[in-house]
C-alpha cells in the first residue's frame, strides 16, 4: 500500500509539473442535443421501454391503474395468498398505486420495515413474486427508469424478484441522461445508489443468443401516471 502523497507526486513528476492546487479549467466539449416535446417524450420513452421487452401503459385515473394491474398480474392471484411477502415494495408509492393496491386487496410488504436484518430483507425480496417501486426520473432516449436510494426504499426491491413494476408520473420523464445527471449534480450529495434500469436483465454470453433474466428481473413493467397539465385541468372539470 502506497502513501497517497507519494502516489500523487509520482504522477505529477510523470506529467512534468507539480499538482495544481485548484481545479483545472473543465474540458470544453459540445455534443448534439436530443430534445422533443413533452408529449413526444412520453411516447418515445414508452416505445423504447417496450422495444426492450418491457411492458408499459399510460393511465389517467386510479380505475385505469387497477385495470392495468389486473391485466398484468391478475393471474398471480395476490389477493388469495396468505403470504404477506408476495409483493414487496418501497415504503411509499405514488398515491395512484397505493390506492390501486388497496382496492385490489393485494397486500404490500414494505421492504425496509419488513424485517430487522438486511439478510432477512434480502430473503424476503428474493422470495417475492413482484417488486414495486417508484422512480425519480425516466429517460426518453433510452427507455430507462432511474431510482435513487434512501432509507424508505430498498435497492433489492427492483432487483431480486422475478418481476419489477415501476410506477412513475409522466412529468418525471426527461430527454437524456445528461439532463438527469445535471439535476443530480445540483443535489448536495448524490444518493448512495443511483440506478439506471433499461429493460429486463439480459445477456448474450451463450453463442450471442439473447437471453432474459439471468440474474435480475425477468419481466419489467412501467405504469405511467399521466400528470400532464391538460389531463390535470380535464380532471378538475
Amino acid at each position: 500500500m502506497t502513501n497517497t502523497n507519494d502516489f500523487i507526486s509520482l504522477l505529477a513528476s510523470k506529467l512534468g509539473r507539480s499538482t495544481p492546487q485548484s481545479a483545472p479549467e473543465p474540458a470544453a466539449f459540445d455534443v448534439p442535443s436530443f430534445q422533443v416535446s413533452s408529449q413526444e417524450r412520453v411516447r418515445t420513452f414508452l416505445d423504447n421501454w417496450q422495444a426492450l421487452g418491457g411492458k408499459g401503459a399510460i393511465v389517467k385515473s386510479p380505475d385505469e391503474a387497477i385495470q392495468c394491474l389486473q391485466e398484468w398480474f391478475g393471474d398471480l392471484s395476490f389477493a388469495q395468498t396468505t403470504n404477506q411477502g408476495t409483493i414487496v415494495s418501497w415504503n411509499l408509492l405514488p398515491a395512484f398505486a397505493e390506492s390501486a393496491f388497496t382496492t385490489l386487496n393485494w397486500p404490500l410488504a414494505r421492504y425496509s420495515q419488513a424485517a430487522p436484518s438486511p439478510q432477512d430483507r434480502h430473503q424476503l425480496a428474493a422470495q417475492a413474486e413482484l417488486g414495486v417501486t417508484g422512480a425519480d426520473w425516466g429517460v426518453a432516449l433510452s427507455g430507462t427508469i432511474v431510482t435513487s436510494s434512501n432509507p424508505q426504499r430498498g435497492r433489492a426491491v427492483s432487483l431480486l424478484p422475478p418481476r419489477h413494476l415501476t410506477v412513475m408520473e409522466t412529468s418525471k420523464i426527461r430527454n437524456t441522461i445528461a439532463e438527469i445527471l445535471s439535476e443530480v449534480s445540483a443535489l448536495e450529495n448524490p444518493p448512495a445508489a443511483l440506478e439506471f434500469i433499461t429493460g429486463p436483465s439480459r445477456t448474450s454470453d451463450i453463442e450471442m443468443d439473447l437471453s432474459i433474466g439471468v440474474h435480475g428481473p425477468i419481466e419489467v413493467y412501467v405504469l405511467l401516471i399521466d400528470d400532464s397539465e391538460d389531463t390535470a385541468s380535464n380532471s378538475s372539470d
Partner: peptide
C-alpha cells in the same frame, strides 16, 4: 460496446450506504 443506447443496468454508487438505508 454492444450497440445499446444504455446498458441494462448503469449504476452510479456513492458508497458506503447511508446508515439508515435498507440495503447496500
Amino acid at each position: 460496446a454492444t450497440g445499446q443506447r444504455l446498458s441494462s443496468y448503469t449504476t452510479i454508487l456513492t458508497p458506503p450506504k447511508q446508515s439508515t438505508d435498507a440495503d447496500g
